[in-house]
């Protein structure tokens, strides 16, 4: 159980870290100054969550790894994030649809984590994160609606984003031995238990945005066991370059 707990927290931390890294790539490239600031804000929140979660994962692992050891000295095969969050940013519509799909899931997951009483350290991190991701979820949903129900061009663009990203969403709800152990311990219900509410909420947003929910049942998965897309390794090469070039230095 102890091993699997560490593994579970890593999944949460890596989701936050990898998405934060992607969003920070937007800095000074946003469609308007206000949106540049908003995306940086979300990236900062996620980075804060990642730091708290990776620190906790390192403590639970008990091998002396801190947040930076985990962020900078693991390979892509050792990262545990869902594939959705590592996908390249694409255009603003791609980024915002990815964000909406993830935010809706993150809210449900943090709600459950914040209200359990088995792992109080994790509950405290989740309670703080929950306030943040609720704001993110409102922001990304609002943008999906604006773009979906904006111009003909924006509608087409985000419908296409949605079609491309949809097959990556099912992975969020997959369960395996790790998530089952966590559910049995009472830390978090099975991922599958979030499917219905997530689907309902996402459909409501898509309806308001006049977008069509894809029918695709394709399932692109592998992140939780370290089998990622080709994109992650490039992201890590960039993120880890200084630490790996000057091992042992303090910054």
């Amino acid at each position: 159980m102890a091993d699997q707990q560490h593994e579970w927290i890593l999944r949460l931390g890596d989701d936050a870290l990898v998405l934060a890294q992607r969003l920070s790539e937007w800095c000074s490239h946003g469609p308007a100054l206000e949106e540049d600031i908003a995306l940086s804000n979300i990236a900062l929140d996620l980075l804060g969550q990642a730091r708290a979660l990776l620190t906790l994962a390192g403590q639970r692992e008990g091998q002396g790894r801190d947040e930076d050891a985990l962020a900078y000295f693991r390979t892509d095969r050792e990262f545990r994030n869902a594939l959705l969050v590592e996908l390249p940013n694409g255009h603003f519509g791609d980024t915002i649809v990815r964000q909406m799909l993830f935010d809706q899931f993150a809210v449900l997951r943090y709600e459950a984590l914040a209200s359990q009483t088995v792992d109080l350290e994790l509950a405290a991190i989740a309670a703080k994160a929950l306030k943040e991701v609720r704001y993110h979820a409102a922001h990304s949903a609002q943008w999906v609606v604006r773009l979906g129900d904006g111009t003909e061009e924006s509608h087409q663009r985000v419908q296409e984003s949605l079609n491309v990203l949809w097959p990556y969403t099912a992975e969020l709800f997959e369960d395996d031995a790790v998530s089952q152990a966590c559910a049995e311990a009472g830390v978090l219900p099975l991922n599958g238990s979030f499917t219905a509410r997530w689907t309902e909420q996402v459909r409501a947003i898509l309806d308001e945005a006049t977008l069509t929910c894809p029918e695709s049942t394709a399932l692109l998965t592998g992140g939780r066991s370290g089998k990622h897309t080709e994109h992650l390794s490039y992201m890590l090469a960039e993120m880890q370059v200084i630490q790996r070039t000057y091992p042992g230095a303090e910054w």
């Binding site: 870290l17 890294q21 920070s24 790539e25 800095c27 000074s28 100054l33 540049d36 600031i37 940086s40 804000n41 990236a43 900062l44 980075l47 804060g48 990642a50 730091r51 990776l54 947040e67 930076d68 962020a71 900078y72 960039e238 993120m239 370059v241 200084i242 630490q243 000057y246 230095a249 910054w251």
Partner: peptide
Amino acid sequence: MQPEGNWITRAPSLKRKSILLAKVQDEAG
């Protein structure tokens, strides 16, 4: 924002990344 934004994705620790990102965001503000 650009010359500093250039190093956000490569910041050598998560703490430094977070401080730099907040700094560049201030400049946008």
